[in-house]
Design a protein around this nucleic acid. Structure first.
Lengths: 209, 209
DNA sequence: GTCTATAACGTGATAGAC
DNA sequence: GTCTATCACGTTATAGAC
């Protein structure tokens, strides 16, 4: 069981939110009981409602902050004018893997919530707008025009890149079993991928379409 | 909303199980109410308990059958002595994509269940045993010994292959939004990947480690 | 086998003492 | 602010008529 970040947890309000983040991430909205959160926070159930009104309101806060972690990572990287396409891929792999090393449940949590609440979430975060108009996307198209890579759909490229980064976290139990690895060993395997993913992706981009 | 396979649904017992499979896949165990299943099956709630005793027992059956779909696909392919490594990759991409086109919720469902019930499920299906001792794994090692590909970990190869196949289904809402695609269009994008994935994977295998 | 009515239980939320 | 006790409600499961 991976622990979330080392936090001081000063106020009761923060203790509750911190516990909620962990429990919601691990079990999802429907399966977590407010009593689980209260217990994890070491406080009484009534306090949860005192500070956050309801389970749903608390969840919305966690959801928003989690999406911010998830999207913030990519946003900071893909619109930097001073990095190349190749460097952006390296940064994406590095930043995401570092994020998920601390909170490995985020990817699956986000995918589940996107399924059950796609419409709401997507029109709020608008991945299409900021991704397709990013420097990253433009550099990709430029590389094609410059003949550096063959013409190919940006979507497949993104699926492969994000899949290589994220999928090992989504399917961690399976791969840990296959490789007979404990949590720590598994993380060091994933650490290797930081360097490899950009090379692999580069190779796929040159493959004939 | 993707529909599950066209089925005759003869008996009441089958109608219930078919409805349960759909609802459990779409919403997960905790979020589905037995009433949802009864309604989807067009029967009364009491009948569900009459045939399957409890929500949990019904779920266990669905889980088992789903894992069978999931693992059965790979098992049939990876131990065939008459196909090459390359052909096996092609078959895996084709079979899995065909399966998930019919029931796109399976991948996320399986990942969620593996998270919340890893120990039980994994010691029952033992992916490590049958995968690592498969003809597929042996052919992979042989290709390295023959100098056809550089030495590299089988686990990374599997992560990349399975990730390319499965991840687009797990993160479908996100990619549909990015590409502005409806369900049908999205499936035809994924269909393209059947041919491309083996080429991409081949390219990654030749990249320097 | 299939239904209606209801029992038994778990969970979210609140009242009210301190 | 924090607690205990309790309410109100939804859900699983069953009893019993047909």
């Amino acid at each position: 069981m991976p622990k979330a970040k080392p936090v001081t947890d000063t106020t009761t309000e923060e203790k509750i939110k911190h516990a909620a983040r962990e429990v919601f991430h691990q079990k999802g909205y429907a399966a977590t009981r407010t009593r689980d959160i209260a217990e994890a926070a070491g406080i009484n159930l009534a306090l949860l409602n005192y500070y956050y009104r309801s389970k749903e309101k608390l969840f919305d806060i966690i959801m928003m902050e989690t999406m911010q972690s998830f999207m913030g990572t990519i946003i900071m990287v893909i619109n930097d004018n001073d990095t190349s396409l190749q460097q952006k891929m390296e940064l994406l792999a590095e930043r995401y893997i570092d994020l998920f090393k601390v909170e490995p449940e985020i990817p699956l949590f986000v995918m589940i919530e996107l399924r059950s609440n796609a419409k709401n979430l997507l029109e709020h975060i608008r991945p299409k707008e900021f991704l397709m108009q990013s420097v990253f996307a433009k550099q990709f198209q430029q590389a094609i025009q410059d003949g550096k890579i063959p013409p190919q759909p940006f979507l497949h490229f993104m699926m492969n890149l994000m899949g290589m980064i994220i999928f090992p976290f989504v399917a961690a139990p399976m791969f840990k079993n296959i490789g007979e690895l404990n949590d720590q060993q598994y993380l060091s395997v994933i650490e290797e991928r930081k360097k490899m993913i950009p090379l692999w992706i580069k190779a796929t981009m040159k493959a004939k379409s």
